[in-house]
Amino acid sequence: MLKSVSIQAENGAEPLFSPLSLAVAPGSVTTIVGPSGIGKSTLMEFIGGHLPRGFRASGDVILDGRNVTRLPAEARRIGILFQDAALFPHLSVGDNLAFGLAAHVRGRAARTAAVAMALDQAGLPGFAARDPATLSGGQRARVALMRTLLAEPCALLLDEPFAKLDPALREELRRFVFDHVRDRDIPVLMVTHDAADAEAAGGPVVSL
């Protein structure tokens, strides 16, 4: 849930957008649309705890009744899916997933099994030893989603997740992402400038 969030560039007089309040129900996807440059990505960074220097923000981010606004990013348990997937190039696909996998899954066998299962769900069985650089765009996006979900986030942010994909692939990946996140019963917030994304998400749409 967001409470009257407002963000201002430090050298700008005007806030990026008028104060915003919204609540996202668990298991649903709320979409924020708006022209580029209005601050959609900055809003995502604020919610995730990554607001860069040079911005001032007011308002609160409340997750499951917990005010996380002052918490560091790593303590918020808010997962992010980036449009460029941000897979770590020095780790294999499997190790990228193991990096994400929550620490309470203990023991090498259990962790390897959890990673293998996630790869199965992503339709990429046997990809554990692959170099992420050899994956296609769609495969990278699926691995990135799995890595994010393995960390067991309490909420999920999608930052233009399909913008870099071919139109043909986009449809398939939308289904994959939305099916997976609905299963999780966590609130999901997406920013996009593609109306088809909002339609596929099937949730409320907020215009900035």
Partner: peptide, 8 residues
């Protein structure tokens, strides 16, 4: 850094 911190 963002990706790593978002993963906790």
């Amino acid at each position: 850094l963002e990706a790593g911190r978002a993963l906790g």
